[in-house]
Amino acid sequence: MTAFTLDNPAGVPSSPRKAFSNVAVIPLGERTLLMLAGQVAWDDDHQIVGAGDLRAQTRRVMELIGQVLAAHGATLADVVSLRTFLTDISHIREYGEARNECFQGLPAPTSTTVEVSSLFVPEALIEVEATAVI
């Protein structure tokens, strides 16, 4: 018996060649844990949105996170943790400002942000993983 399910919600770009699932859904009795795979700012054709623009990419990533959450009855208000990978940490303020726009009026989730030398999509400036509890 599997204690979790893996899902690629309709309307959310899945990984090329279905290399990974967008979310693991883990029942915890009265609650459910949603562990989202890292999202990059791509469109349905796996083309990066906002090339060279961290703010635009952050907004797109948060939009995709919101879509994955919505498919499971959750919203950004249910996010308890974010793990962010930036290709240039000197732009952390831009990321923070764009992220805060998306979480406006909500408690800030726990957050870890690190710099990486590159991401799996060369044009991507950011990748964000999220964990939510519903």
Rank of each mutant, 00 (worst) to 15 (best):
A3C: 11
I126L: 08
R60I: 02
L34R: 03
K18R: 12
M35E: 12
N8T: 07
D88F: 04
I89A: 15
A41Y: 06
R17M: 14
Q39V: 04
I134S: 14
T110Y: 15
R60G: 02
V133Q: 08
L6K: 07
L28A: 11
Q104I: 11
P122A: 03
C102F: 07
T110L: 09
L28P: 03
P27C: 04
V40G: 06
T75R: 14
W42S: 07
L34A: 04
A132C: 12
E127Q: 02
T58W: 00
R31D: 13
A74I: 04
V79Y: 05
G11W: 07
A98D: 06
I89C: 05
T113W: 10
R59A: 09
P122T: 03
A41I: 05
K18F: 15
V116C: 00
V25C: 09
E129G: 15
V40E: 01
L64A: 08
G105Q: 08
V40F: 08
Y95Q: 03
D78N: 14
T58V: 08
G73V: 06
R31M: 11
A10L: 12
D53F: 09
G73Q: 10
F4Y: 11
T58A: 09
Q104K: 15
A98H: 04
R55H: 10
T112S: 09
L125I: 00
E30L: 12
S81P: 13
V79Q: 08
I92Q: 09
R60K: 13
F103G: 01
A56E: 09
E123Y: 03
V116F: 00
E94M: 07
D43G: 06
A41D: 01
V49A: 10
D53T: 14
K18V: 13
Q57Y: 00
M35V: 10
V79N: 10
L34N: 01
L6M: 12
D45I: 10
E94A: 12
N8Y: 11
D88T: 01
I89H: 09
A41F: 06
A74E: 13
I92W: 03
S14N: 15
A132W: 04
L69N: 04
V121C: 10
Q104D: 12
T32I: 00
G96W: 03
M62Y: 11
A56G: 07
I26V: 08
E127W: 00
E97I: 12
T84M: 06
H91K: 12
T2A: 11
R31G: 08
I65A: 01
E123W: 03
G11D: 11
N8V: 05
G66T: 05
V133E: 03
L64H: 02
H72V: 03
H72W: 06
T2L: 14
F120S: 06
L76K: 13
V116E: 01
V49I: 15
M35T: 06
P109A: 11
V116T: 05
R83W: 00
D44A: 07
I92N: 06
